[in-house]
Design a protein around this nucleic acid. Structure first.
Lengths: 253, 253
DNA sequence: CCAAAAGTGTTAGGGCTACACCCATGT
DNA sequence: ACATGGGTGTAGCCCTAACACTTTTGG
């Protein structure tokens, strides 16, 4: 069976090149049609989904491992990426059950032993991502964060944890800058904040606060298309955005 | 040489029982005489200091490893402990130089290879700690955070990173509760906040804000001893403190 | 003309900062 | 008595939250 041989070859290499007992998992967030999305992969010959992840080469920094996973799944380089937590419980999930669900043709200690996983979240421009499965998975797709199915391993918990982090870091990290395309409207930015925070915001107060930070440029162009007033387009002023983040001008609580 | 044999025995066990390429490092913070302190260890037959750390048993949670290190160095159980970052750069420090400075009688891949380290900070009541070296170190002592000498590995960077985290988490974590003895005065609490934040605070505003949170009980007793007015003693009201933290009533920025 | 969404200003209240003097205690 | 540090109140400002109507556009 060809897949079996591929797997054996793959794990021979991993045994040689990668650090045992350790992995990285990536929560890749995107924003599309006013919904916060995560990128998930479906494992070959199963209906089981998980976060994209990978192993850490012995000579590679952990950040680079995560960046590599991201590049492979999205086709993008230099993605905004933050380590947010290391998951090191001695029993993170039911290994026997997971092993069954994975339906793998080969055995390996990495499936049956405890693994410590370093969690990263990434923020990407949805429209530029080209979702690509790896050779152990046969699908790679965006899911609405609040429609995510029961995942393999403890990946549902990891997503929850990433979301919590994202909410907190909304104040300090250039989250809009990374999740939105270059040009966007004020209502789109507001929806993004509302989605992440899980509550509605007043459009007048939102606009005042955001514009008060002086990190946006209002463009001449407007967006057209709806049967309604055309919204202005904005783009981030990169210098001023980064300066503001430096000196810690926060936003929402 | 007896130490050499001990070390060989120790590392034989570690090779069997502990996860390779991984360690935990603990930044143990205390507060004494209006100074924020960290607990450091000095390695045998050297003048070189480092953070206390340890390895992770294959069946043990990472949190438990850190708790174990803490218990061994301080004699305290159930210490307040938070994971704050995993240090995974491919080159964290000059291994050749470090190897020389360690002055160890045996060789082992853990000294010459890259290691990924999971960083924890702990907050302890200074007065209850009994600093205890382990068998590879011959001293365990408190240092003023701003008098820390050049440490082994990248431990100076790790301390800086822990301090940054501490400043941010001052808002959400029961930092006063864990760093101070049961009874303390308002000026002591204020000094603690000032030390961590690195700036002075107005005593009237500080008192107003803290008392407004309704998490302190003012005791009948006062502290005596100085040639000046005796300050009130306070203690944390545990229930109300934890309730306030739950609902996220923050404090300083 | 109508439906849908975008754009916009004012007011009231709470929290933050700034600021200075008297009090209690031990020597 | 004096030196040391502890304890306390007020006023201005800014930021925040609450709140509703008009404008633009496409169908």
């Amino acid at each position: 069976m060809e897949y079996t041989q591929q797997l054996e070859f793959h794990f021979d290499r991993i045994d040689k090149e990668a650090i045992p007992y350790l992995s990285v998992d990536c929560i890749i967030f995107g924003f599309h049609e006013n919904q916060l999305k995560v990128l998930l992969v479906r494992w070959k010959n199963t209906e089981e989904w998980s976060l994209p992840g990978g192993f850490i080469h012995k000579t590679e920094s952990v950040d680079d491992s995560a960046q590599r996973v991201l590049e492979e799944r999205t086709g993008l380089r230099n993605i905004f990426l933050r380590q947010f937590q290391t998951f090191g419980a001695s029993v993170r999930y039911d290994t026997a059950d997971t092993w069954k669900r994975l339906n793998l043709p080969i055995d390996h200690f990495r499936w049956t032993n405890r693994t410590i996983s370093i969690g990263y979240y990434a923020l990407v421009d949805f429209s530029r991502v080209n979702p690509t499965p790896d050779f152990m998975t046969e699908a790679c797709q965006w899911w609405d964060v609040d429609m995510v199915p029961p995942l393999l391993f403890d990946h549902n918990d990891i997503i929850d944890s990433a979301l919590k982090t994202l909410r907190i870091q909304l104040n300090w990290q250039p989250i809009g800058y990374n999740l939105l395309p270059e040009k966007f409207t004020m209502p789109e930015l507001q929806k993004l904040y509302e989605t992440i925070l899980g509550r509605t915001l007043d459009p007048r107060n939102f606009q005042k606060k955001i514009l008060g930070l002086e990190i946006l440029d209002r463009l001449k162009e407007r967006r057209r298309g709806g049967a309604h007033r055309s919204p202005y387009l904005y783009s981030f002023n990169k210098e001023q955005y980064e300066a503001a983040l430096q000196e810690g001008s926060l936003m929402f609580l």
